[in-house]
Amino acid sequence: MTRDGQGSGSDSPDLRRTQELFWDLIAAPQGVRPGLAALRASGRMDAGDLSFMIRGDDRLAPEDRLDIYASMYFYRLRDSLAEDFPKVAAIIGGAAFHNLVTDYLLAHPSRHWSLRYLGVPFAGFLASQDLSRSFPYLADLARLEWARIEMFDAADADVLTRDEAAVAGPDLHLGLIPATTILPFEWNVAPIWRHLEHEAAHDDGGGSNSAAVTGDNQEEFAAPMSVDRPEQQKTPTLVWRQGFAVYHRTLPPTESPCLEAALRDGVALPELCEILMGGEKEPDMQAAMRTVAGLLGRWLKDGLVVRPGFVSS
């Protein structure tokens, strides 16, 4: 133990150093004792064991006591990610998911006060892993699972009704509710999502869990679930919340640029016609107006259009 960070008049480290060591050791991927050896090897501490900081007794050594916290740390976060990404976990299986999370927490330890945000960089991390060579579509599936979480508790908004849209007529300026996002997928993952959702709904044992504890306290990992590889194709996908239910659907080529424009800054109806003609999606203004009318009807039905002037509380 260096003199830095020691409490006055004691061999114990001060509060800051205690907490830093505690964190280093419970976040060590192999457990407290290997973590301690790594700290010693790197010259960050020279004590042989943890008795200078933690009291042991006839039941448990200091390292064993700290290991209780190390286990709770890892399993709580792993289980939280398994709850956020049940379909990714189902495809790769419990053991691979466990290892993936181990690496993920080393690269992206939680820095937010809420566990809700632990999965923010998960899809990007997944895309960078060897696992993505075998499952190249997995990062897109993770993005879909995450976007659905984001939409679940996004800000509320008043939705424009058909009657209100009719009153506004061609002067209507379209803005979308906050609980709307568009994901530019490279893989068509919606059918896999639907298949796994159906499987989970018909599995009374909660089949998408990544692991379960057996009677003898050994962890039994769920086996990987076999799914057909999806098509590799650009598949812009809309994810949104209507009421309290979250939905997603693949966007056709005519709808995608229009909805993206509405999502960016809001859009007036004539601008939508120009987008359609400029992108050569429609040959003339009349055809474009017909398409815009159809799109607007769908967006109103889906509850995507925010009432003008609405300010979130």
Binding site: G7, L15, E20, F22, W23, A27, Y73, S80, S110, R111
Partner: peptide, 20 residues
């Protein structure tokens, strides 16, 4: 305490009961 150095463990970690 729940974390240090900007990290959050999302666990309720024990305090040393010292004057400091």
């Amino acid at each position: 305490w729940t974390g240090v150095g900007g990290h959050n463990t999302h666990d309720l970690l024990p305090m040393p009961y010292s004057e400091e």
